[in-house]
Design a protein around this nucleic acid. Sequence first.
DNA 1: CATGATACATACTTTAGGGTAAGTACTTGT
DNA 2: ACAAGTACTTACCCTAAAGTATGTATCATG
Lengths: 121, 121
Amino acid sequence: MTAIKETSTIQENKQYALDICPVTYVMEKIGGYWKPIILYHLSTSDKRYSELKRAIPAITEKMLIQHLKQLENDGLVIREAKPVVPPFVTYSLSNAGNGLIPVINAMAEWAFKEKDGVYGG
Amino acid sequence: MTAIKETSTIQENKQYALDICPVTYVMEKIGGYWKPIILYHLSTSDKRYSELKRAIPAITEKMLIQHLKQLENDGLVIREAKPVVPPFVTYSLSNAGNGLIPVINAMAEWAFKEKDGVYGG
DNA sequence: CATGATACATACTTTAGGGTAAGTACTTGT
DNA sequence: ACAAGTACTTACCCTAAAGTATGTATCATG
């Protein structure tokens, strides 16, 4: 069932791919360039918005806030704002977000091995 | 050192980010939508070009071959062509590619848990 | 009264990734 | 002679993602 449409774009096939490939399911949530990087920085410790900004200098504010919102909507990070001024907003990993730490760690481990030429550099 | 340029794009900051964040390093190689999916299918068994095509119906031939080439250039997959006709080309994971299996598996595991509501669905 | 710090929002433009469609070369089958 | 299967290649187009550049609100400080 779940036939493929003739006019097939990534968007339209997402539902299909989701059923058949778990990795695709993950890519829907943390795919793209910045999200895993943000999650990595949150995995070491909760961080304020400005701390994340400083931790990832290459990211623009638009990208940062945009992805934080998406991660929040997807239930991976939790946003907590203290009603003070100047604002004090903290981002942390949710339960589901913590579940991704093994993925992030596996990535980091691979990166270090690759750099060290373990795989034949 | 390694100061950030004023005109900062992802491209220009890749070198910088690579030094500071291992996850970024991984994303350079397997970032994007299709690559992890391709690696996932190759992790279960070596496959011919046409087998991959059938395994990932949503992907176009252009994307498939393009990402396979990049993965080959990045030393993650190995292409073996038998000089017969019709062509017989097999793709398999390299040493470094096999090193990514824990990442892929961690992703798959998370996806199943998330679907099962383990994290509070 | 202007500046800085906080955490955003929003309009506009550019670019890169992805999609469509067609073609190539060689052989087997009808 | 023509279609089908193999593994691609190439040219063109379109859209979604990313970048640029502003603006907002509030208070503290000089």
